[in-house]
Design a protein around this nucleic acid. Structure first.
Length: 588
DNA sequence: GCCGTTTTCGGCCCGACTGTTTTCAGTCG
């Protein structure tokens, strides 16, 4: 049986192959649309595929549903194997080069048998490419530069890093006096966990001046393209950055367009057509080849106005992934998403007792500076040698220190004494229950034996959650974005077990983790699982990572009611005790 | 390949920029 992830990968590959063949664009889109639909499908994928029920999903039709069934059940897809035979496997790496698409790659392959980047580089250098119809010396120079660029940079960047660079560029742009509105857009504004490039938008009456000012930033390595209203550059940090400049009254249209996602925009524009309008990044216009009387076009001065004109409630950027937000907005059923101001505290934080940098006192002060009502301390447990994990005595000593410190605070702030307890290979915990019961709460995390088979890993984690003292499951997949794959685990089962055992799941807000992935939170919420947004702070400044956690929670459609660290102090005190109470009230 | 508040066929989002071209195709977002 093939998994959902394998199926999505297959369909993406088919889309690329069809591009190479110069297939109808809408047929290609059908395959990529199917991938988007599957990403957030939370039912039993293999069962649905086996029963050929995926065609019921919006965007998936009979033909692709049948192909998926064949692939999932038999492990093979004849259609794909025939397609695949027409091109070598290595050809896909050519798509990663800026400026190369299906058509050109096919021309290179047909005429020069170029099937990998290394072939292309040689053919560029010996002059063969420049002689091809449609290619020339400038194309060759650009291709060589694109090859160089790909060697230096992997192509994707952490949200945390991208956010810094974006702010630096925005600060630079703001120095120009003709900027009247400015915003980051693109996947950064949507809060994607990794970012391919930066998109910046400026409204001004002086487009040429803004572009000129943009291009002199000393953060820029070199310019890729520039015109009157848009420019692309490569920053020294290696990330491509695109700027668009529009007039003031065009700003809301441009902001929606430039924020994306692409799929979200496609749906918005086809909705506009239904009203007899055509939507672009500048305005709504009556559809020229009009087949019906267009509705009068309302005045639009904000993004919200535009969504309203299209019969939708305002859709926050984080939700614009064509993952059901349009339907919900049409019905007025979008949730009121969590905001930073809703946070009252947080739970997974380290001190210098294990591998953190700051003391208990300093961490408490930082939390109070942020206006929090409470802060949970969860240092590593003894098996995490590499992180100077605490042993039993050290942990109990820390509990005492926390209790002493708590007496110095007024009634409006409290430290909670916890631990980040290792989940051992067999699913037991690093400390016995007699120790855990002396804490206010326990975060249980996997820090070793990452390579267990999926079944064992899943039951290991579920066993840990069955412990009545485990309050929160920490970073559920162990992924490190762009550097370490998640361990093999059946998250659907883990989420269901979390619901059964009343265990909270962490949304680890460290920008390298952002784990549990936002795509699973809608399902978790439906199952009744609560979320804890934790920065996994290893210093006082690390608490700032909560911003990224908030963004991911918003992407996961979560509200303040779904996230336990939005609970006020008295409510969270009760909540932390609930799971274990059932056990402790039983006679021994 | 998908889909239906004109349609089961004939549409399907829209524009900027580049480079190779004498009017446009390819790529990108």
């Amino acid at each position: 049986m093939k998994t959902k992830d394998q199926t999505i990968e297959l369909l993406e590959t088919i889309a690329k192959l069809l591009e190479l063949k110069g297939e109808n664009l809408f047929r290609i889109r059908a395959y990529t649309n199917t991938c988007r639909a599957l990403e957030t499908f939370s039912g039993n994928f293999q069962l649905a595929a086996t029963n050929n029920e995926l065609g019921d999903l919006n965007g998936i039709g009979e033909a692709i549903a049948k192909k998926i069934s064949e692939y999932v059940v038999t492990g093979k897809l004849e259609y794909f194997e025939k397609l695949q035979a027409e091109f070598p496997d290595t050809i896909f790496e050519l798509f990663e080069l800026q400026g190369l698409g299906g058509k050109k790659i096919k021309a290179l392959y047909d005429h020069l048998q170029i099937k990998a980047i290394i072939d292309l580089e040689a053919a560029c250098k010996d002059g063969r490419v420049a002689k091809l119809p449609g290619f020339g010396v400038r194309t060759v120079a650009n291709l060589l530069q694109a090859i160089e660029q790909r060697r230096k940079h992997s192509g994707r960047f952490l949200l945390g890093d991208a956010n810094i660079w974006s702010n630096e560029m925005l600060d630079h742009l703001r120095q120009h006096s003709d900027v009247s509105q400015i915003s980051a857009a693109g996947s950064l504004r949507r809060g994607k966990e990794t970012i391919g490039d930066l998109d910046l938008l400026v409204a001004t009456r002086n487009p040429a001046g803004i572009i000129e000012h943009f291009l002199v930033s000393n953060l820029i390595d070199h310019v890729l393209a520039h015109g009157d209203t848009k420019a692309s550059v490569l920053l020294k940090s290696g990330i491509q950055t695109d700027i668009r400049v529009v007039a003031n009254h065009e700003f809301p249209f441009a902001l929606v367009y430039f924020t994306g996602s692409k799929e979200h925009n496609v749906v918005l524009r086809s909705r506009a057509l239904q009203s007899g309008w055509t939507l672009n990044e500048y305005r709504l216009d009556p559809e020229p080849a009009t087949r019906k009387d267009p509705k009068p076009i309302p005045t639009i001065s904000t993004e919200a106005d535009l969504y309203c004109a299209l019969g939708l409630s305002y859709i926050p950027p984080e939700l614009r992934e064509n993952h059901g937000e349009i339907d919900a907005a049409e019905k007025g059923e979008l949730p009121k998403l969590i905001e930073w101001q809703n946070l009252r505290g947080t739970f997974h934080n380290h001190t210098n007792a294990s591998d953190g940098r700051n003391t208990l006192e300093e961490m408490a002060a930082a939390a109070q500076d942020l206006g929090f009502d409470y802060l949970g301390i969860a240092d590593h447990s003894k098996s995490s040698f590499q992180a100077h994990g605490l042993n039993e005595q050290q942990l109990l000593k820390q509990v005492e220190a926390i209790q002493t410190l708590n007496k110095t605070f007024g009634p409006n702030f409290q430290l909670f004494a916890g631990v980040e307890c290792d989940i051992l290979k067999d699913g037991t915990l690093d400390f016995p229950n007699e120790i855990l019961s002396q804490l206010d709460y326990v975060v249980a995390s996997v820090h070793a034996s990452f390579t267990l088979p999926e079944k064992e890993m899943t039951s290991r984690i579920i066993r840990a959650m069955q412990n009545p003292y485990v309050t929160i499951l920490g970073h559920p997949t162990g992924r490190l974005l762009l550097s370490r794959e998640p361990y093999q685990v059946d998250l659907t089962e883990v989420i269901k077990a979390a619901a059964d055992t009343k265990t909270v799941i962490e949304l680890n807000a460290n920008p390298r983790r952002l784990d549990l992935d936002w795509r699973f939170w809608k399902f978790a919420k439906e199952q009744g699982v609560r979320c804890a947004i934790n920065p996994d702070a290893h210093s006082a400044g690390g608490l700032q990572d909560l911003w990224f956690g908030i963004q991911m929670a918003r992407k996961g459609w979560l509200t303040r009611a779904d996230v336990i660290n939005c609970f006020p102090l008295d409510q969270i005190r009760k909540f932390l005790g609930q799971k274990r109470e059932a056990v402790e009230s039983q006679p021994r």
